[in-house]
Design a protein around this nucleic acid. Structure first.
Lengths: 225, 225
DNA sequence: TTTTTCAGTGAACACTTGTTGACTTATTTG
DNA sequence: CAAATAAGTCAACAAGTGTTCACTGAAAAA
């Protein structure tokens, strides 16, 4: 109990600190479990309706082995939230480091984002499905991440000259509106047949227009009115 | 098979056509099953994670009796979608028949709507949870209803003088934005402790501002730009 | 080399699950 | 009144559930 390290929760192997063949193997299985869950989520089923045993089976592992990595399904769910939003933050970092030209900025940003969600479908499908129907811990984690994302966007928006008249609260309010709109479009696209490019394009255009409408309103906004 | 009426799906009793003691009883049990499902949904669980047997138990009925009313859980889910949106349409009809004064119209509408969602929490919680995580049939049904709702709102919005410059498509686009915003606020409120009036008020104000921002943009909008 | 650690195994457990078929019993129908 | 209808009951089923425990065997530590 003192010097023993039980290490039931991957706290070490998850970060791949030492990197021996054993840690690597553990990491692989952990990923296999997470990927298995994401795979089972695709289409009809939701995370709360899949079983620990199914996840283990798809991951090619006996059910008991699951517990070497997660304390239960809820734990797995939280890990998937982290995983999914890491994906999102990576994208936003890339976007900032290679900024788009100011002309057609909105249309390009929307296109970039929606393209990204389609390329990482499993993660975003997981988020969309668990956002409201998951356990309260998972829901809370997702809401926290979205709030964070909203704040990031607000910070990115602040320098724009047209948004001078916004105070901090109202800027977050506006960013929240943009995030909501983008999320709604994402969720629609996820529910559409990938090959139905016409419908996907329609959703794109709609989201673009909606965000343009928001910015049009922003140009006329006066905080503390 | 010809003159026999098996009546496995409540098609008659659901509408309560004849109204005898038997039909009334059947209707009561049907409602009990639906209410049981809504009750089980409250809080942690989601519709896809509750079982037919649990629903039957809460409804005070043996599992086999469930099949006298619904062919399975998915069928129950579709019935709940209908039920929930009937609630919503009732509200919108009431709102139109007793129109609010034009001053503070937005703030009043938002307040009315959000109040309503809190008074019919189970229905709206069901919709929020199943919108993305339910079976495809249920998701489709919900999306269809939301689209309908959006069109209704667009029709209500059309007469406004400030929205002269909108064509039909763009009007639906704007209505969609408003609906999304209201839904997002609703979903946030449902996830907040009912007694946390400060947080509820914060969400109210935020939604109001967001919709005002949209209308501000609308006043500057030119369709087919 | 010997010992320790630990991811993964296999079997067993006590339950819950959806669905079935034959039944009872009150209402409806003729 | 007697016959038919059908909502609800009861018991049984095969299959799947989460969790446990003693185990094996390869990698890590000594």
């Amino acid at each position: 109990m003192r010097l023993r390290k039980k290490n039931n929760d991957d706290s070490e192997a998850a970060s791949g600190s030492s990197g021996g063949p054993r840690d690597e193997r553990k990491l692989r299985t952990r990923r296999a479990l997470m990927d298995a869950a994401l795979e089972l989520i695709q289409g009809e089923r939701s995370f709360s309706s899949i079983s620990l045993r199914e996840v283990a089976k798809v991951a090619g592992v006996v059910p008991a082995a699951f517990y070497r990595h997660f304390s239960g399904m809820e734990d797995l769910g939280l890990a998937l939230v982290d995983d999914s939003f890491r994906t999102l933050h990576t994208m936003m970092r890339e976007a900032r480091s290679a900024p788009l030209p100011p002309s057609n900025l909105i249309a390009n940003s929307v296109a970039t984002f929606l393209k990204y969600t389609q390329d990482h479908r499993p993660h975003f499908e997981f988020i969309a499905k668990e956002r409201y129907s998951g356990s309260s811990a998972v829901r809370l984690a997702i809401r926290r991440e979205i709030r964070l994302w909203t704040s990031e966007l607000a910070a990115d928006l602040a320098p724009f000259p047209k948004l001078k008249s916004f105070n901090g609260d109202d800027l977050r309010m506006m960013a929240g509106l943009v995030v909501n709109t983008v999320i709604a479009a994402t969720e629609l696209i996820l529910d559409v047949d990938t090959k139905d490019t016409a419908e996907v394009a329609r959703i794109h255009r709609n989201a673009e227009k909606q965000i343009m409408l928001i910015f049009l309103g922003a140009a006329a906004w006066k905080s503390q009115a």
